[in-house]
Amino acid sequence: MNTLTHTQDMLAFAWWIALSVSVLLYIMLDGADLGAGILTLFLGDEDERGAVMAAMAGTWDANETWLVVAGGVLFGTFPFVYGSAFTYLMVPLALVLWGIMTRAVALEFRHLAEPRWRRFSDWAFGLSSLGTTFFGGVAVGAALKGFPMTHPAHGIPTYVGGALRFLSPFSLWTGAAAVLAVMLAGGLFIRARFKRGEPIRDHVARWTDPAFYAALACVAITVGWSALIFPWAAQKWFGPQFWIWGVLLIAALFATARMRRATRDERDLAAILWFNLTVAILGVAMIATMYPWLVPNTWTIYSGASPQVSMITFTLAMAGFFPVMVMYNWYQLWVFRARISKLVSYHD
């Protein structure tokens, strides 16, 4: 069912780019926060845990905003996908939401908690970071597999198939892979956010090596597995345009190598930027592989789009609101860019 005009097709495509950018930005920005949160599970020193939280205190909310923006674009422009995919993903999304909720409370209220509660709330923070990442990864893996829908004669197909259909070896694997990948991001984040000579930096440095190889293995396994079970992916990767994917792979490997060198040279900011370039290349490659599917074998960008995407609303959002918001967010990151030490207290 495609009722869109040619212009609307182009607008749906443009919104799809905006959606992809939001999702990728969310993964890059909050991924570091989530990974640092998981790493706090391995920090024995209460002040260090507190300092990790303080390091993200001014920005976590703005980072999470990209998830909400992605949700908003999905609902506003691809409501048919939103209304069916989210029902399919109910269980993992509920778990992600509980994780986000717990994390927000543990983070925002830590400075007020009694010392004996602080231990509990620190555990809650670490575990909720872990849970959010894992079930977020599960949701992505489950979405890649697609889902069954009703076939109404009139009206919009919607999800049928039960609450546990999201479970598969592949989706559980993508959950685990997400955890390992964000731990690398979290390690790089902690190294960049703390002053040189802080013990936590050296502590985390010991982690980044194994985390790097684990993340590399995760990506390789995920790509291999996808090629085996997803014909839509294999057709593109091994089709006549195979060289495009080859170039992307080489670019990703190059960025990864640069990240390793920057890590070794203690150029922490450069390491994060190269890491995020790798993430961006892999993310773009994955999204491009899926095209024109938004949810493989279920919704394309064009069948899932609102029949009323219009030039006016798109221009309003992209030319009006979006640049201003990005500018404000950037300014905020700029103000809070300084390195901190372990003894930084949350609210002073």
Binding site: Y82, G83, T158, P307, M325
Partner: peptide
């Protein structure tokens, strides 16, 4: 909305989703 009221979200999406989308961009993100 998408999880609990999927068919409503799909049917009302062109208006309702658009308005909530504006909320996220102009209010939440702002």
């Amino acid at each position: 909305f998408g999880i609990l009221y999927g068919p409503f979200s799909q049917a009302a999406g062109p208006f309702f989703g658009q308005v909530l989308g504006y909320e996220t961009i102009t209010a939440f993100m702002y």
